[in-house]
Design a protein around this nucleic acid. Sequence first.
DNA 1: ATCGTTCGTGAATACGTATTCAAGGACAAT
DNA 2: ATTGTCCTTGAATACGTATTCACGAACGAT
Lengths: 342, 342
Amino acid sequence: MLRKKTSSNDVARIARVSQSTVSRVFSDSDAVRQKTRDKVLAAARKLGYAPNALARSLITRRTDIVGIVMADMTNPFYPTVLEKLTQRLQSTGRRALLFNVTPDRDVDDTLPLLLQYQVDAIIITSATISSEMTNECARRGTPVILFNRYVPGAEMSAVSCDNVAGGRLVADLFLNAGHTRLAYIAGRKNTSTNLDREKGFGERLRERGCPDWLYEPGEYTYESGFAAAQRLLARNDPPDAIFCANDIMAMGALDAARELAIKIPDALSIIGFDDIPAAGWPAYRLTTIQQPVDQMIEATLEMLDARIKDPDLAPVHRWIPGALIKRCSAKIRDAETTSHAK
Amino acid sequence: MLRKKTSSNDVARIARVSQSTVSRVFSDSDAVRQKTRDKVLAAARKLGYAPNALARSLITRRTDIVGIVMADMTNPFYPTVLEKLTQRLQSTGRRALLFNVTPDRDVDDTLPLLLQYQVDAIIITSATISSEMTNECARRGTPVILFNRYVPGAEMSAVSCDNVAGGRLVADLFLNAGHTRLAYIAGRKNTSTNLDREKGFGERLRERGCPDWLYEPGEYTYESGFAAAQRLLARNDPPDAIFCANDIMAMGALDAARELAIKIPDALSIIGFDDIPAAGWPAYRLTTIQQPVDQMIEATLEMLDARIKDPDLAPVHRWIPGALIKRCSAKIRDAETTSHAK
DNA sequence: ATCGTTCGTGAATACGTATTCAAGGACAAT
DNA sequence: ATTGTCCTTGAATACGTATTCACGAACGAT
């Protein structure tokens, strides 16, 4: 069995042309006479030749590889993101080098590995990055974009849903429906998504003269949502409306309520965030704020492309409004129309 | 801003050594005197130098990149697989180049791209590959391993759960529990997982003198499971036990039964396959056959490593037994113990 | 003092491609 | 016939690293 990898030189030899010509045929930018092009292609087919992307990248200084750093892959929101992201990258002639990290520490340790592979850009989802690493990437001219996270005050590009507006919307929905004892089940502390959703929620409640609400910590997992809801519902003064920082916790909360035979939404309204596929299942029918994944991805790629072209572009942050998806887990005043969170 | 990438030559110059020595320090295989090593490392740190993995791979003929081809990423079983797979690859010093494909046609078109990047090996999950492509990979000496799929009779390595045994086990459970009208909701036609689960199920039923059972097509999605169950339960002779080819369809089936107020498991037993996280949620408590993901991944990596070392090793197929996870969606005879599907 | 061995280092080369430069040929205009 | 332009091609070089080869120094044994 022939184990020798065939190179453009081999093709050149049997096509009786120079290596340059073979290269020109396969980078198909340069002009080659049709007849010689055919000769080269015939020889290439015969040898099963395909250009070595590594050698090519070494000289073009472009790999067409985008690094994706992802934490929290088991949160059902992210597989969708990953799927759409890789598909969009592939459809624009790029490939994804995937790294899985734990949310906090690992990113900074992982990035050097990515950089060694000379990736054209980096997308970090559901995790953040230190300023030093950001600077290192900037120095090398490798664009970095945070997806669904950001670092307040830091100079890095980011794309996320407008979580503050989403939180405010939920506050309005609850108050308009006549709820009086509200609660918030939080996502992982110090993630920007959690902080912003809570901020918008609390801010709007205060504005409307309702400064007191219950708070339970959570971790963006089903189990933590379930447990947090149990704690809330075991109180002497249980809430009549719960805003969960994401859908998967909201489902946990719904199941906790179900175990206590609490009528949803009559005795308790629950609203989530994300609109993962399972939110629509008959067992849940979760009312939620939808993250506009497609738009977020398009925005990410736009920003990426612009910064690959000009690495010195200033960092920018894009917030994309979410949309209310009305289902059956929350009492909603009739007048309330399915609308974008502004 | 300094945009010039620093190379080992730059480091060599300011450390006053040769480029060879710098290389030796960073490939840390070869002997370098401690004092010169320190000089080099100091210079490297000063310049922010990190070796170029592409140039290195060009000469070592190893990229430490493993290509992962994945279809069906939104089936909740696969994010877990992907997460564990990438983590194991990372922990053994390798990285994952991820491709997303539609189950059928795309794989063959995608593989050439992967090969151009000189990946050390390829893992294909929930999809298959043509024999021609397999041969092409073999010719190049790039090991390919199918994960959770195989092509009967074809010469390729594969790792999967013992789906036939799983199907047989379910048949036994149903019959032992006294069920008489059985049904199977299928996964995507002509996937080996679906065929084997159905085969084991039907085979065992026939062996035990129960050759007739209902069949509904499905597509491994929640919606298809829901619809298939609706069709089954609308019959004049509805089944009293349904085996679903995967968990997500089983959840759809459970919800369909719930809408008809059918008592689970008294009036209807439902068993799934996979044991995805949601199977354990209180809303479902799905009895299922667990795929031993960790073992399957270890087996995959073992086979991979062996074939990277010796590309001429013969293809091999490993079937790993699944385990029954008893929850509340199926009536199970008391004597039945939580056991491995043999 | 001589020899053989080991250790540390540098010069040179290879990996497989893209790109620059020069050159040759064809061809039209004069 | 001469000049100039365009088109096509090949030779040479660069990309950034690992590795082979050779060489000198150091060192122990005799």
